[in-house]
């Protein structure tokens, strides 16, 4: 009986998903299986090929970012590795003229400056500069490159929006979202 007073019944979640035009949401361990499953789901959305491919690309890089930066990790039996935990959401607007792809995960506070610096730097580059920067990143030592973030902005063709919400003294919740406009093709 008490459950009916909470806002967390399946129906409440259903309404939430509908109201926000959420096409896909997953929270948990970002295993290869999960990524594959989400990828298949994106490909089944009836959008233009190019938009679908861009959404898919951005999602793949966001998932890999979660694996890279999440402060919460767990051992995956299927991947035989520690994988990151976080959330990935793909939503659209009422007329499907644009899509928002976003991720969220906990990060250690000491990583905030590093991430902000990279994101701000990438956000002020124009297309040509991004192209050059991406090539350069492919030749930067792998643990220091930011090819994933550059890959996202280049596919999305819109700036990366981010936020860090403090969760405790040592951690923050890192939200990263980007809009992808529907291409008519």
């Amino acid at each position: 009986m008490s459950q009916q007073n909470n806002n967390d019944t399946p129906y409440d979640f259903y309404k939430l998903v509908e109201e926000h035009h959420i096409l896909l949401a997953f929270q948990g361990m970002m295993t290869t299986d999960v990524l594959t499953m989400m990828g298949r789901n994106v490909k089944e959305q009836a959008e233009s090929d190019i938009t679908r491919r861009r959404i898919f690309s951005v999602m793949v890089e966001l998932v890999q970012n979660i694996n890279l930066y999440s402060a919460e990790k767990d051992y995956s039996e299927s991947d035989k590795k520690m994988v990151g935990k976080g959330i990935v959401i793909i939503a659209t607007n009422h007329d499907k003229s644009a899509f928002t792809v976003g991720s969220g995960n906990t990060v250690k506070n000491e990583q905030i400056d590093y991430l902000k610096q990279k994101l701000d730097y990438i956000n002020q580059l124009d297309n040509e500069q991004l192209r050059g920067y991406f090539r350069q990143q492919l030749r930067t030592p792998e643990d220091q490159d930011s090819k994933g973030l550059v890959g996202i902005i280049r596919k999305a063709k819109n700036p990366l929006r981010y936020e860090f919400l403090p969760t405790d003294n040592e951690h923050s919740f890192f939200i990263l979202t980007v809009q992808i406009n529907q291409e008519k093709k």
Binding site: F56, E61, R139, K147, G151
Partner: peptide
């Protein structure tokens, strides 16, 4: 058909 940025590195 598709490759991620990490694969770009390997292609290079």
């Amino acid at each position: 058909i598709y490759f991620n940025t990490s694969s770009s590195r390997r292609f290079l």
